[in-house]
Amino acid sequence: MNTATTIVLGNEKGGAGKSTLAIHVLAGLMEQGARVAVIDLDLRQRSLGRFVANRRRWLEANGVVAPMPLEPDLGADGKALALMPAAAQIERFDAAFAEVTDCDFIVIDTPGGDTALSRHAHGRAHQIVTPMNDSFVDFDLLGHVDPVTLDLLQPSIYSETVWEARKSRAAQGQGSIDWVVLTNRLGVPEARNRKRLDERMAKLAKRVGFRIGPGLRDRVIYRELFPFGLTVADLSPQVRPVPVSLAHVAARQELRNLMLALGHAHDDDRGGDLDQAA
């Protein structure tokens, strides 16, 4: 029986940073020594799947040993699977999900849109992590605000998706879902828009039941290592495809803070070698 903790990266809006976050959550878990499986349900883009493929090739080419995630087989290439009926997609997903029997975590990346497959995966989650940009455009998928007063009116479509996933798990006696929403690609920290957004986020969090976590700033560092299949969590004296700077150290601490907020990290210092190298 599958006893792994399932983490779903979800948001029905594209461009919110789900895949970037999925990659870094995966790397953060492996840094802790966890055994992790990944399922990429963004069937056309497949950023998470390409990251894992890049990682395998870079490690082999450079003779470096580093943790690799398990990839259960969905049974078809992404484009072909995307063209299948929803029932067939769900069947393939369930078979792949059942394949994972010896892992601590399953990380699932979902597409930027509402699909039957994505909703089905949400129903499997123990934890849903929702990144959003620092914008009322992104917030609109979580909650509607009054256009005159900016008061919170009601939860929106993605909040309803998570609510349905929670009802499904509760009906099956599978416990609750820990929902964490975080603002990604943060810009100027004291912007007026940020204050307004934070206030509405806090109100909606109480109303629909999510936690607010720390996001990742808009750093080139989070994107520059993608072609190598690496993240700042992987950097060490042995793993260094790019020159290391103090900015990498700051990004690594930011990732550690995120993992702590999600409840998947130990509050210790494992970045000493990187600090010295920088």
Score class of each variant (00 low, 15 high):
M1R: 10
N2M: 12
T5P: 00
L9M: 15
G10F: 07
E12N: 11
G15M: 08
G15L: 06
T20C: 11
I23C: 00
L26I: 00
A27W: 00
L29T: 08
L29K: 12
M30D: 05
E31H: 09
A34I: 00
R35Q: 11
A37N: 08
I39H: 03
L41R: 00
D42E: 14
R44N: 08
R44Q: 14
F51W: 07
F51S: 03
N54K: 03
R55Y: 07
L59D: 04
A61P: 01
N62Y: 04
G63L: 11
V64G: 10
V65T: 12
M68P: 00
L70F: 12
E71S: 09
E71N: 03
L74H: 04
K79W: 05
A86G: 11
A88R: 10
Q89N: 12
Q89D: 13
D94T: 00
F97D: 08
V100Q: 06
I106G: 03
I106P: 00
D109E: 06
D109S: 03
P111S: 12
R119L: 14
A125N: 09
Q127R: 13
V129F: 01
T130P: 01
T130K: 01
P131Q: 10
P131T: 06
M132T: 08
D134Q: 15
V137F: 06
V137L: 10
D140C: 04
H144I: 01
H144K: 13
H144S: 09
V148L: 15
L150K: 08
P155S: 15
S156E: 15
E160K: 13
V162P: 07
V162C: 11
W163Q: 13
R169Q: 12
A170G: 02
Q174L: 15
Q174C: 10
S176P: 07
S176E: 15
V181F: 09
L182A: 02
N184E: 07
P189V: 11
N193K: 12
R196F: 08
L197H: 14
L197D: 15
D198V: 08
E199S: 11
M201G: 10
K203Q: 14
K203G: 01
A205W: 05
G209T: 07
P214N: 09
G215W: 03
D218A: 03
R219Q: 10
L225F: 03
F228N: 00
V232C: 12
A233G: 04
A233P: 02
D234Q: 09
P237V: 09
R240Y: 03
R240M: 10
P241K: 14
H248F: 11
V249A: 14
A250C: 06
R252L: 13
L255F: 07
R256D: 15
L258T: 02
L258Q: 14
G263W: 08
D267I: 03
D275C: 11
